[in-house]
Structures are given as structure tokens and as C-alpha cells.
Design a protein around this nucleic acid. Structure first.
Length: 805
RNA sequence: GCGGAUAUGGUGGAAUUGGCAGACACGCAGGAUUUAGGUUCCUGUCUCUCGCGAGGUAUGGGUUCAAGUCCCAUUAUCCGCACCA
């Protein structure tokens, strides 16, 4: 009797072996392959089976590339600054540095259970001064390049997290992190000019092998639009009001104008009769939270009493204020064409303003317009434009306006600059010194890092000041420029600061002279494959692209996109698709499963549970099926390894087909069907081995090699049992290859249909001629044919169909 | 409201280019082994029908010799954006 399958013994044995000698030695002769996981923040709750999935996927891919002959860069680190770590620390009443260190230790142990190829020599931690020195260094470089600037303005403020937020961190009016409604707060903030990169961030998406969904989300977030700015003089005054429109073709239909309540001219446009109402409206708008603004879509507004002049036809149009116009997009003022814009239509109906149709689908005006017509058509009521195609006018209008000196062609973006300061303790101090004489001065590079000081109270103050502001001896310093007394910037950076560039540091994490050595970077970067959840589509992934482009521009690296290929894995949820969380009590820990079924079986089941890109419900029971497969495969190899049976034609066919199927499924990331493929071919091999009295060595070895990225321990053991002394991951010939000729059957089964319904299946030579096939098919279904055959279809290898009348 | 994705047995899910729907597993049922339970092995398992056969991939149409797959409309669920002029 062969050695029975004992996952615990096998796994313990190989863990030790791999510790003694890595299977992924740095070999400069091999081409690199950089496969990266989104690094976790070390929370106190540890890993559940959902966290495993992404790490298993990336490890399977890494090991596959390893066997193909690459040197694998597969690092792991800790995104340990930021709100989650700090909130956890506050909750548990310990210093964030302490709780972070404890959590890192714990999660590292849990990650090691996965038996991934992680190279811990490359480990980084964003809270390590040797790391955040370079996070600060990048900020200084951006400051010097004019990309980091201070501005006082109303920003998104989370009253629960007690800090300002970037636009990207506000989802549907609530804080992305804690779900509290976001308010506005007027604060002096550090901003990063990500808008300077808007076009490159947009255009370079084309270069990336990313899911279309993520590209689209970024495209929409950047929100580029083409249109025109048009100046409307204010009737009887000197000022002009500039508006932005994407529909200059509808200019003759502009019947009123709306300014955002925050517009600079809003108050001064009020006539004496309207002043009281206007002031009240401006005040009311200022107190409205963003959630109110989102939830209550009923249009409100107030007439200023003033009029503007349509520069094209001299028409006088009333100027209104309304909060449906955003102050910080375009010019904060719009011309309103109710006939051709839904929002303007609604506003015009509510306040009984005139509606002039200027485009008609068929050129005929609708006297009773019930809704805005936003499509294209023939221009009407538009002086010399009338009768022309509206799309043509849309293209030409900006130039016409420019010629007449009343407007110009313009481009606008939804993307806003990045609010970069946080009023919290647990982050990188912003390396700036405020000097009464010199203003904001960057801390000299040789003085970096600006260490995060120890404090008694690291709880957020909620006042808009960081807890750091209370530490006088830290705040008070000298100006690096003039030497006079000065104060340190007390805001910290957002969590995204470290994660925007950490992937560059892994490959040179001990370098204290440079962020990354250029030669090393040229050789080992960028990331070839990035694996993580979709939740960072416009946060981390946009910020990282921005940072990478900047670092490329200043010559630190020579590529301007960080992640060549991106894969978003779906979530593993609890019952009924509910996200696993401690509070829901539906968290499944991998610990028991690893103990009872082994790491390899859990790895396999993580993939088998469903398509990797979709969410999957965790169903504990299914893992039995994977475990049974492992046992059967183990027994198959053990029972046959010493038989030295020659390869039969039939067995060779199975082998080549197995290589073909498994490889193509793996290449297309259909990992759940790779696992079912292993099961299927295992059953086939078992059946045939029974019939033929054994199974040849090459087939066994091929199966073991292909299983090794998925179940590395068991594959190594079986490889050794098959008589090899080197690791299964070191294959001179790379990944198993298949020969299409060897996969072919001599005889093929072909269904024969009558009127599209299968009547029988016949066996024919693979290279049968059309005539012979049809003849054989007709004979086979002769008894089922009652009428006259009007059409005969033969698709080689697929189908025979007779159309009968 | 706009945009995107998804919809297949009791369950998770398979199905290159349109070519035998339900692979592979879970579960369930029956049997063998076992003192018994568990394990393991074998058989069955879309629905209706004793059977022949018929029907069947969210719903309704269409294209085709042939549709889960392509086209049109509808419904449901999930995700993204949400007054961006």
C-alpha cells in the first residue's frame, strides 16, 4: 500500500525546505516578472478567507511565471498609516505605532499560511521613517515644481473622522471610510495639482491592459468635455459674466442665466428690490450640506433683478441664482437653454421662464414642448444658423464666437486638485516650514525625514487643526531659508500618499541615498501584473498613476505608467452576498480550514468557488470536493509512480489535451475552470489507468507540474516521490507544451440533426469528406425523415443537419 | 435620471467561432465496504411521461438549417456616476 495522503506532514516538510532554500532565487540571467498585490493595511481583525483569494490568485500567477522561466518579484508590505490604523488604535487605547507593529506581526503570520512566494527581504512599511522619508521627498519635489500649493477654500469635511477629505474620498455625499455625511469647511489646505496631468491620465489609459470598467471609471472621473466659453455683458453695467457650455449651438435658445450662489458677482447683481431675497438665498445655500444638495433635487432659485445680454442677438435675459449650478466647475455660471437641457427645462417650468426651441429633429418646431430635446437635428429660430445641421453648428460655433470676440473654444474637466492635508496624527508630517518672512518653505532634502513626533494625545481635535499643533517644541523651529523663528506645518498626509509609490520601493527598499536606484528601477520595474479589489478604481489607482508620471518627469524612473496589467478579483462574501465583517458575525477564518484540509486544498477551493473576477458566496461544504480530488490525485501518482508503464496513444492524447485546456484557461484567468479541469482530467486518467493497468511517467509528471502553482506543497512532494531532487518549480523546459496533432481523434462523434433537432450521434473518421459524412448521416436518420430533404448542412467535426419539408 | 454588468438544475457554476445545454463539484437518493458513525468506492440525479417522446438557459419578439450565445423590447438584481451645463 502506498503512502497515504497526509496534508499536514507534507506541508510542514516543504515549508521547512523552502525556508532553507528559496525556489525563487535572484537570477540576473532570467527575465523579471513583477507580480504585485495591493498591500493591506494591518487592521486588528486579521485575515479571513476573502483576503486569501487575491493573494492566492497572485501567487498562482507568480508560480506559473516562475516555471515559465522568470525571476519573480513578488513582494508584500504594509499600508500602515492613515485612518483605519489610527481609529483602531484609538478604539483599543494603545499608541498607533504599537498597535500597528502588533498587527503587522499577526497578519504576517497569517499571510505566511498561504505559502505564497513573498520575498520578505523586500518588505516595506509606509510608517517606517526610512520609507516615509521618500514620501516626504516626493512632496518636496512636487512643491518645488509648483504642483503642491496651499489654498484656503471650502473643502469636504468628515465630522466623524474629523478631517478634510479629497473629492475621491466622498462617495454619494458621505465619507468613503465611515459613511458619515460630509460637510463643507473652510480650511487652508495643501493641494496637489493632479489636474495638471488630467490629459495624460486620460490619454494614457489606452496603453494599459486594464479592465474596461476601471478605465471607464477613471475616464468619467477625469470627465473631459469640449465646449466654449461665452461672455454675456451685464445690462447697464461694465461687468461681463463668462459661462461655459458644451452646447454653443443652442446659444440662440438661451432665455435666462444662472449663477452659482457662491459666484463672485452673485450678491452685487441683486437690485435693491431683490437684495433681501438674494442675500437670504446665498446664506441658505451656504448652509446646505452636500447630502441635502444631493438628496433634494427640487430646483430652487432666486431672481437677482439684473439682466444679461445675449452677445449673439442682443436679447436681454434675466440673471438668476441657483444651487444647481456648481461654483467650482467651469466658470460657476451657465447660460440656460430650457428647450434643450433637462435641468434648465425644469427650472424654466418652475419659475415660468420663456422657452425657445432652436433645434428640431425634423426641422419643425413643436409648439407644445413637454420635455427638453437634447438630441441633434435642424437649427431653427437661430438667425443665419437656421436650416443648418445642429452637429455642424456645434463644431463651428466656437470658432464663430472667437471671430466675433465674444467667446472661445474651451475644454473642461471634472477632476479637481487633490486635497492633500489631513488633520490627523497618524500620517506623514508634511515637510514644510511656515516662516513669517519667507512664507512656506520646504524642509531641505538632507533634513528628511521630518519625524512624526511622539505625543500624549493623538486623538483628532475636530477643530481643523492637527493634534501635532499642540506640541510646541516640535512646531517651533527655524526657517531653513532665513534662519529666523518659524513654525512647522502640522497637517499630515492622507493614507494614499505612501501607497501612491510603494511599489517602486520594494525593489530597492534599503537604499538610503535614493528613492530607488535608477539602474535597479530600469531593470526590475514597472509592475507587470497588479492584483487587487476594484474599490480603488479612482483612488489609489489614479493617484499612483499621477505619482508615477511625476517621478518619470523628474527623471527618477523612465516609465510613466506603474501597472501594465490589472486584475480585479471579486469579493468573497458570507451567506446571501453579505460582506464579511466582524460586526455582522459572518467572518470565516482560514485557520481551521488550513488545519483540517491543508493550505493546498484551501488555495484550490478559493479559486474553485467561482470566477475570480466575480463576487462569490463562501460555502464551507464545497471544500470537501477539492480535498477528495487531492486525495485521488495523490493516490493516482503514488500507485503508478513505479510502474513504468509506456505511454499509450490514448494516454498521450489525454496528456496533450490536459496541457492545452489547463494552459488556455490559466492564460485567460479562468481559474475556477482550471480547477474543474484538473478534476476532469484526473477522473480520465484514473479511468484509463484502470483500463490499461497503469499510467506513464510523463503524464504523471506533466500533471504534477501543472498542479504545482495551485497546490505547491503536494506537487513538490509528488515531484520528489517521482524521483526528482530539484524543485518542481525549476523546469528546464518551462511550462508543459502540447502538440495539437497529438490531441486529435481518429474518429469523431458527430450529432446528426433533422430540422435542428438531434436524432442520433454517429462516429466518423476525423477527415471524412462532406459526401461521405452526409451519406452516413442520412443512413443513420433515414427512419426519422418523413419528407423531402431540402438542405444538407455539414460542419466538419461539429454537426450534420438535414432540413426536411 | 445616466452609464455598465449580470440572469442557466435543489446549490456553486461549465459551455473556443452560433453546432448534442447542464462539464466539474456541492447536496440529495440508492447500493457496496464497515460492529456502528465517519471515510472510501459504485450507481442515479434539469422538468413532465411507465415508456415512446415532449419541453427547457429571467420575460416577449426577431435573425438563422441551427441561438444560453447574435439583434430589438421588457423585467429583476448588483455596481459606478449623480445637477459637471
Amino acid at each position: 500500500m502506498a503512502v497515504p495522503f497526509n496534508h499536514r506532514e507534507v506541508e510542514n516538510k516543504w515549508r521547512k525546505r523552502w525556508e532553507e532554500k528559496t525556489v525563487n532565487p535572484k537570477d540576473p540571467k532570467k527575465p523579471k516578472y513583477y507580480c504585485l498585490d495591493m498591500f493591506p493595511y494591518p487592521s486588528g481583525s486579521g485575515l479571513h478567507v476573502g483576503h486569501w483569494r487575491g493573494y492566492v490568485i497572485s501567487d498562482v500567477w507568480s508560480r506559473y511565471k516562475l516555471i515559465q522561466g522568470h525571476y519573480i518579484i513578488h513582494p508584500m508590505g504594509w499600508d500602515a498609516f492613515g485612518l483605519p490604523a489610527e481609529n483602531y488604535a484609538i478604539k483599543m487605547g494603545v499608541h498607533p505605532a504599537k498597535s500597528t507593529a502588533d498587527n503587522v506581526k499577526h497578519i504576517k503570520e497569517q499571510i505566511n499560511q498561504i505559502a505564497a512566494l513573498y520575498d520578505w527581504d523586500m518588505e516595506v512599511n509606509t510608517t517606517d521613517p526610512n520609507f516615509y522619508k521618500w514620501t516626504q521627498w516626493i512632496f518636496v519635489k512636487m512643491f518645488k515644481a509648483g504642483l503642491a500649493y496651499e489654498k484656503e477654500m471650502p473643502i469636504n469635511w468628515c465630522p466623524s473622522c474629523k478631517t478634510g477629505l479629497a473629492n475621491e474620498e466622498v462617495v454619494g455625499g458621505v465619507c468613503e471610510r465611515c459613511g458619515s455625511p460630509v460637510t463643507k469647511k473652510n480650511l487652508k489646505q495643501w493641494m496637489l495639482k493632479i489636474t495638471a496631468y488630467a490629459d495624460r491620465l486620460l490619454n494614457d489609459l489606452d496603453k494599459l491592459d486594464w479592465p474596461e470598467k476601471v478605465k471607464k471609471m477613471q475616464t468619467d472621473w477625469i470627465g473631459k468635455s469640449y465646449g466654449a466659453e461665452v461672455d454675456f455683458p451685464v445690462d447697464g453695467r461694465e461687468e461681463k459674466i463668462r459661462v461655459y457650455t458644451t452646447r454653443p449651438d443652442t446659444l440662440y435658445g438661451a432665455t435666462f442665466m444662472v449663477l452659482a450662489p457662491e459666484h463672485a458677482l452673485a450678491a452685487s447683481l441683486a437690485t435693491p428690490e431683490q437684495k433681501e431675497a438674494v442675500d437670504a438665498y446665498i446664506l441658505q445655500a451656504a448652509n446646505k450640506s452636500s447630502v441635502d444638495r444631493l438628496q433634494n433635487k427640487e430646483k430652487t432659485g432666486v431672481f437677482t433683478g439684473s439682466y444679461a445680454v445675449n452677445p449673439l442677438n442682443g436679447a436681454k435675459v434675466p440673471i438668476w441664482l441657483s444651487d444647481y449650478v456648481l461654483a467650482d466647475y467651469g466658470t460657476g455660471a451657465i447660460m440656460c437653454v430650457p428647450a434643450h437641457d433637462d435641468r434648465d427645462f425644469e427650472f424654466a417650468k418652475k419659475f415660468d421662464l420663456p422657452i425657445i426651441q432652436v433645434i428640431a429633429k425634423d426641422g419643425v418646431e413643436d409648439p407644445d414642448l413637454q420635455e427638453a430635446y437634447v438630441g441633434s437635428g435642424v437649427m431653427i429660430n437661430s438667425a443665419d444658423w437656421s436650416g443648418q445641421d445642429s452637429e455642424k453648428i456645434k463644431q463651428e460655433a466656437p470658432h464663430i464666437l472667437e471671430e466675433r470676440g465674444i467667446g472661445k473654444k474651451t475644454v473642461n474637466y471634472k477632476l479637481r486638485d487633490w486635497v492633500f492635508s489631513r488633520q490627523r496624527y497618524w500620517g506623514e508630517p508634511i515637510p514644510i516650514v511656515h516662516c513669517p518672512h519667507c512664507g512656506a518653505v520646504a524642509v531641505p532634502e538632507e533634513q528628511l525625514p521630518v519625524l512624526l513626533p511622539e505625543v500624549e494625545s493623538y486623538q483628532p481635535t475636530g477643530t481643523g487643526e492637527s493634534p501635532l499643533a499642540a506640541i510646541d517644541e516640535w512646531v517651533n523651529t527655524t526657517c531653513p531659508q532665513c534662519g529666523g523663528p518659524a513654525k512647522r506645518e502640522t497637517n499630515t498626509m492622507p493614507q494614499w500618499a505612501g501607497s501612491s509609490w510603494y511599489f517602486l520601493r520594494y525593489v530597492d527598499n534599503k537604499n538610503d541615498k535614493e528613492l530607488v536606484n535608477r539602474e535597479v528601477a530600469d531593470k526590475l520595474l514597472p509592475v507587470d501584473m497588479y492584483i487587487g479589489g476594484v474599490e480603488h478604481a479612482v483612488l489609489h489607482l489614479l493617484y499612483s498613476r499621477f505619482y508615477t508620471k511625476f517621478l518619470c518627469d523628474i527623471g527618477v524612473i523612465d516609465f510613466d505608467e506603474p501597472f501594465h496589467k490589472l486584475f480585479n478579483q471579486g469579493m468573497i462574501t458570507g451567506k446571501n452576498g453579505i460582506k464579511m465583517s466582524k460586526s455582522k458575525g459572518n467572518v470565516v477564518s482560514p485557520d481551521d480550514l488550513v488545519r483540517d484540509y491543508g493550505c493546498d486544498s484551501l488555495r484550490m477551493y478559493e479559486l474553485f468557488v467561482g470566477p475570480p473576477e466575480l463576487d462569490s458566496e463562501w460555502d464551507e461544504r464545497g471544500i470537501d470536493g477539492v480535498y477528495r480530488f487531492m486525495t485521488r490525485f495523490w493516490n493516482l501518482v503514488m500507485d503508478n509512480k513505479d510502474k513504468n508503464v509506456p505511454a499509450s496513444k490514448e494516454m498521450e492524447k489525454i496528456r496533450h489535451r490536459m496541457v492545452n485546456d489547463i494552459t488556455s484557461r490559466l492564460e485567460s484567468f479562468s481559474l475556477n475552470t482550471v480547477i474543474s479541469g484538473f478534476m476532469e482530467y484526473n477522473n480520465k486518467m484514473i479511468d484509463l489507468a484502470k483500463k490499461e493497468g497503469g499510467i506513464d511517467r510523463e503524464t504523471l509528471e506533466t500533471a504534477v507540474i501543472m498542479l504545482s502553482p495551485f497546490a505547491p506543497h503536494i506537487a513538490e512532494e509528488l515531484w520528489e516521490q517521482l524521483g526528482h531532487t530539484d524543485s518542481v518549480f525549476h523546469q528546464e523546459n518551462g511550462w508543459p507544451k502540447c502538440d495539437e496533432e497529438m490531441m486529435k481523434d481518429d474518429e469523431v462523434e458527430i450529432p446528426v440533426q433533422v430540422n435542428g433537432k438531434t436524432r442520433c450521434v454517429i462516429s466518423l473518421p476525423a477527415d471524412v469528406s462532406k459526401e461521405d459524412a452526409l451519406k452516413a448521416g442520412e443512413e443513420a436518420v433515414a427512419s426519422r425523415i418523413s419528407g423531402k430533404i431540402v438542405k444538407e448542412i455539414f460542419v466538419p467535426g461539429k454537426i450534420i443537419n438535414f432540413v426536411v419539408k
